[in-house]
Nucleic acid binder design. Sequence first.
DNA 1: AATGAATGAGGCTTCATTCAT
DNA 2: GATGAATGAAGCCTCATTCAT
Lengths: 220, 220, 220, 220
Amino acid sequence: MAKTDTAEQSRSRRERILDAAFHTFSTKGYRDTVVDDIAGAAETSKGGIYFHFPTKEAIFRELMITTADKLVGKVERAVALETEPVARAEAAIRAVLATFAGHRTMARLLFLDTIGAGRVFQTEVNALHERFARLIQGYLDEAVASGAIPPHDTRITSIAWFGAINEVVGRWLLADQAGKLEDAYPPLRAALLRSAGVPEKRVGPMPMPQPGVEFPETKR
Amino acid sequence: MAKTDTAEQSRSRRERILDAAFHTFSTKGYRDTVVDDIAGAAETSKGGIYFHFPTKEAIFRELMITTADKLVGKVERAVALETEPVARAEAAIRAVLATFAGHRTMARLLFLDTIGAGRVFQTEVNALHERFARLIQGYLDEAVASGAIPPHDTRITSIAWFGAINEVVGRWLLADQAGKLEDAYPPLRAALLRSAGVPEKRVGPMPMPQPGVEFPETKR
Amino acid sequence: MAKTDTAEQSRSRRERILDAAFHTFSTKGYRDTVVDDIAGAAETSKGGIYFHFPTKEAIFRELMITTADKLVGKVERAVALETEPVARAEAAIRAVLATFAGHRTMARLLFLDTIGAGRVFQTEVNALHERFARLIQGYLDEAVASGAIPPHDTRITSIAWFGAINEVVGRWLLADQAGKLEDAYPPLRAALLRSAGVPEKRVGPMPMPQPGVEFPETKR
Amino acid sequence: MAKTDTAEQSRSRRERILDAAFHTFSTKGYRDTVVDDIAGAAETSKGGIYFHFPTKEAIFRELMITTADKLVGKVERAVALETEPVARAEAAIRAVLATFAGHRTMARLLFLDTIGAGRVFQTEVNALHERFARLIQGYLDEAVASGAIPPHDTRITSIAWFGAINEVVGRWLLADQAGKLEDAYPPLRAALLRSAGVPEKRVGPMPMPQPGVEFPETKR
DNA sequence: AATGAATGAGGCTTCATTCAT
DNA sequence: GATGAATGAAGCCTCATTCAT
């Protein structure tokens, strides 16, 4: 006699709201997303949403955090597979690019709209950036410790790395008919490793721009 | 002399509005800035603003463009003083950092709120980023041509440079009691030059992090 | 019984808004009616109105249509009671006059403010007029078919009829202290029937103006 | 040495404003006409307008009156050419139709937008209608006095006449690709004369609808 | 838990009119 | 007389949040 109660409702309404919000925020941005949009996408009512979450802001906040968690998780798992310091750094870069390539919306949510949410989230976004920068810095410090790269101001380098990756992903997102994000990996990897002082022979030959690989201009 | 009086007045009022908007946008962000805020800051009436500008959006747009123009101008002037390719690139980096250090609000307007304005400006912002990336790429290509750095995918490198600089400035902006932005120059410069393949001996010794130099954590 | 409660409530609120709008539009005209006026009269909030209707315009539009429907309904019911062609036409005229006499505000809404709404409604109003003209033309054609009146250009005649009735009602509406609208029936009836070619003896004696019957001059 | 001072400026600025206003009001309607529109069309400045007229309303008012004057003048001149009572009435009808046919904008101003101006002009419009009704009534009374038509309530008949003519013109104005307004004359004339009791043999044969003569449906 | 109606504080923009030059 | 910049009172609509059922 049990209706579709279980499966359908188990991944509770809350989850469904989160999914819907994720999708909507990624598509229309925080400010342009109306609570009703989320309700509609989640097949709930506005009231239903406010039962599970105190404010629209809270939904966004939670989404940002869990999404970041997922990304960090992926990176950490990828890094764990490697032992050699530089290889670990490479794995991190590759993981980020691969993840975003596979989840364009995730990238949108985390990197594009982020500030768009308004002053309210400045802090949140800052924390997010800091978190990633520290993650990177951890790997760099490791590499320094192991002697793979010379000691230097890894704080700034990690910020630079994050900014560089961020921007490359961002351009790719905004490009009208972007090529494959993975194609950006070789040159980006080379630039980043080199910037951290990885020896030339470990970096390998300078990758040349491959025809058609560069992102097309944004049209509109 | 008497003739241009009115025109002068008008231009000055327009300027005053622009200034006020610049300040308000930088402080509160685009969405959180109300037209009345601008009017108040410009000591005009709301209607007065709408005489000079068609929409709130138009004000922001104009501000973004002229501000970017100023920055580009500064960079180009700084670069023009140098002849040696790598030195020119260094000058560019230094100019950006110095300009922002001196005009915190300018940085805020251009780099922080930018996307915050909402989907509407996505295009604008993208164009802005692209513009700077191209500026950088120009210098890199020059350096490649002169043999100062090896040929490689300067498109990605320039994007990475822009992202790195952008992020460093952003962290500094958001830091509660930031140190001097100029202190970030040595390590950033080293990282960037290296990433583009500038020979070690030209880059110089790895700058170590100086105590107290790193940006303090964001508090709030 | 408990189920329809909410739906009932909603419908009733919607109705209340419609009533309030009807009254306000009739009194102050479309442009001079502020949404807050309607909200006030409906004892709701502005937002409440916008929950039930997308725009101020939509309210007006719906009002025009349903009001016209009511009027048409009355006319058709009155006509249905008669079988003889000319008698049917007479019934139609009488029904319109009687309806408006009983619902001054209805008249106001339909005939006066109508165009006042601005270019936006030109189409709507035109359709309204056309609808009534066609209604009339139907009766005239019937009469022609039955041989009660000679064949002629019933299209123009019906437009003329509508215009004539419209104007008589309009004058009555605008007259400061109008007499009874019904008093205008005998002469108007005579004029209209005659204009369509109804034989003299069927029309009857020319009704003379009755003292005090004519509409007083508009004062203000 | 005299510039184009005389001719150009003689038909003073005031006149030019009036012309411009006439055109704009006719085209966009009173409410949708902005004072700047008039200024632009008159090649003056907003201030210039307010030198010559106290308010926007005053311009419209003056325009309505002078336009009505012109129309009345035409009618009266046309009527004066005839001596036989019924012929005079016919001349009046023909004059109105011909005038409007030749000056579509004049018709627009007087008959369409009229009420659209809002409650403010209700009085004005009423007076306008009354004026024309009286004009007609004068001719009808004349005809009664001369025995050309039987005595009856000429007040209502004249109102009906005006309404009928008004509506016919109105439909023609609103029709997307109206035929010639003059084509409506024969049937309209017949209907009106008959409505006033003009003997059949004087009215002549019932005009049949001519193919293609009727106004096309309004499309949009 | 859920629904969906209701609220009301703004937000952006328009525009007739005024006024200094 | 003319100009055009400035004013400010509204106006329509949006939307996060609350609340009765």
